[in-house]
Design a protein around this nucleic acid. Sequence first.
RNA 1: GCUGGAAUCGUCUAGUGGCAAUGACAAGAGACUGUAAAUCUCUCGGCUUCGGCCUUCGUAGGUUCGAGUCCUACUUCCAGCA
Length: 403
Amino acid sequence: MLKFDIHHRQGLARVGIIHTPHGDIKTPAFVGAATRAVVKALTMQEMNDLGSQAILANTYHLILRPGTDLIEEAGGLATFNSWHKPTFTDSGGFQIFSLPNVKITEEGVKFKSHIDGRNFEMTPESSMQAQWAIGADIHIAFDHLAKSESRADMEEAMHRTHRWLDRCVDEHLRLEDRRSMLFEGPPEAGKPRMSAPRPWRRAEATQPEKSMLVYPQYLYAVVQGGTFNDLRAESAKYCAAKPVDGFGIGGVFTADGMGEMLQTVNAILPEDKPRHLLGMGQEPLDLFIGAEFGCDTFDCVGPTRMARNGSLYTKDGRINIKNAKYTRDFTPLMPDCDCECCKNYTRAYLHHLFKTDEITAKVLASIHNEHFIVRTVDHIRAALQDGSFQDYKQSFLSRYYQK
RNA sequence: GCUGGAAUCGUCUAGUGGCAAUGACAAGAGACUGUAAAUCUCUCGGCUUCGGCCUUCGUAGGUUCGAGUCCUACUUCCAGCA
C-alpha cells in the first residue's frame, strides 16, 4: 500500500505526505500536467526550480507516441524525462472518450489514433499494463466517462466504471505480485511488501513476460457520478471498499456544487488514503474548495495552456498580456512573485515576446503560471497547518475575483 | 524618349459591368479546467433609432440604369528597348 501520513486535519481538509518510490509529495499539492511526458514549454529543471513536486502524464498520448515499451526500456517515466520525482499517469480514458467514433463495449474501448488513424483497443487490463510499462508511481483506474450530463448517462458510466475498476484492481494486483516475486521474493510473514526505494533501472525478467520496472507502483480508483450527489456517494462507497491506494475524483467540470459534492464523497472515502481531484485547478477557487473539502492533490492543464495563450495569473485575477495596455508597462508581471519570470522581466517585455510570437514568451509565461498555482497550493497547505486557512482563503479570493 | 505592364481598406492580395469589395498578415478583444490547444472565436472604412445611410479601389473627366471593372487624359511605379 502507498504510504500516506497525515500530520494535520481541519474538518475534511488535511495536511500530509504521500511517500512514493520516487520521493515524497507534501499535500495538498498541485501536480503539473505533463501529458506527453513533458510540461509544455518547460524543462524538468524549470519545473523543479519553480517548486513543482510531481507531474502527471497521460497513458493515451504515450501509447500513441513514443509507445509504452520504449518508456519501460528507458527505465520508466521519471528516468525517461529526467524528472526523478513523483509521477502519476492518467489512464487515458478521459482522452479516448473525447475522441470521435469510439466503440464502447463492456470489454473496453476501440478507437482510432487522432494522429494517423491507426486502430487501438483499450481495456481496463491493457490500461493497467500500459501504465505499469510507463512506470509512474501512481496510476489512475481506467474509467468510463458519461456521454452527457444526464442522470441516466451518469449512472451508466458510473456502473461501468465500477465494473472496470474491479478488473483494473485484479490486473494491477497481478502485475504487482509479479513484480514483487521477481524482485523481492515471496512475501514473508510480518514483513511489509513495499520495498525500499532503489535505483530505477529496468530489470530483465526471467519470467515469460519480457521485462519489468523494479519499483512498486500504486493504483487510484476513480469516483464518478457527475452532479448527482447520491450517485457520488454510491460511487465513493464502491471505491472505498476496494484494495486501492487512493482515489481520483473524476468528471468535475465546474466549481458550482463542487464543494458539496466533495463533502459527500470525502466523508465516505477512507481518511488514510490520498485523494486526487482530476483535472481541476485552473481557477484558484477550485483549489481552495478542493483542499478545504479533503482533496490532497490536483492536476490541471489550465495554467500552462493559459500561459501559452497569454492569459497570466496575478493576485488581482488573470490578465491578457497581449493587450495593448501592457505595451509600456515596465513593471513586473506580479511584483511580489519570486518566479524567474517576475524576478527578471517586465510586462512590456512579455507583451513584446507574445506580440512577436517568440518561443520564450510561452516559456516565461508557463513558468509564472505554473509557479503561481503550485505556490498557491503550497500556501493553502501552510495555512491549513497553522490554522489560518479561512483567512487566507478569504483574502486571496476576494482580491483575485474582485471586479 | 519609345513600347508594354501596374496602381484596391496599415501591408500583400482577389476581383474584368450590379461591390463596402476576396483571402492572408498586421491590429483590437474574448475564450480556454483528468491537453487532437504555440489553439479556437469575434471585430477590423465612417455613422446608425440596426432598417439602413454616407464615403471608398492613383487623379480628373467620360460611356452606362449601374463603373474597382469599359474609354480618354494626367500622375506615379515596374520591365524591355533606346
